[in-house]
């Protein structure tokens, strides 16, 4: 039986009818078109499906779509402000922080959450905050460096 829900995705309200067994990640990708949230493992291990739910990072593969009723969701598509990349995104580009890029949406969102909650993170803080977002390409160094530089720019 389909259930009506209202979800706000990147500022737009989406009235949707969903089956109870539909996964939020699938609904975001297939019904809302937010393809930035990726399917990597479907069991919460890799972090590439990360979204912000009411401002906090969650694994959209571990949520039923119906659970998102009444909540605000931000995906990677919602991070640039009027098409302008965040300072962090610019630094991710200049540091070559991503190679294949498949983990990038989750890491960009996770790093934004970190810098909002902790504007002055240590290297360990960055590593700890991103430890659930797997990247196979980069060895993480250029990612961590970019986040630390972004924090430094905030401070200055």
């Amino acid at each position: 039986m389909k259930l009506p829900i209202n979800v706000t995705v990147n500022g737009e309200t989406w009235p949707l009818d969903v089956e109870p067994n539909e996964i939020l990640l699938d609904v975001l990708r297939n019904r809302v078109g937010a393809k930035g949230a990726k399917i990597g493992c479907e069991r919460g291990d890799c972090g590439t499906c990360t979204i912000l739910l009411d401002g906090r990072s969650v694994r959209s593969c571990l949520m039923l779509a119906v659970e998102a009723d009444g909540h605000e969701i931000t995906t990677i598509e919602g991070i640039p402000d009027n098409g302008v990349l965040s300072a962090l995104q610019d630094l991710f580009i200049s540091h070559n922080s991503f190679q294949c890029g498949f983990c990038a949406p989750g890491i960009v969102l996770g790093a934004h959450e970190l810098l909002r909650d902790n504007p002055n993170p240590s290297r360990y803080d960055v590593q700890h905050a991103l430890a659930g977002n797997l990247c196979r390409c980069t060895g993480y160094e250029p990612i961590i460096d970019a986040v630390l530089e972004a924090a430094g720019e905030d401070r200055s």
Partner: peptide
Amino acid sequence: VASPGIRNR
């Protein structure tokens, strides 16, 4: 426990 995306939930 796990990571922020899990701990938040």
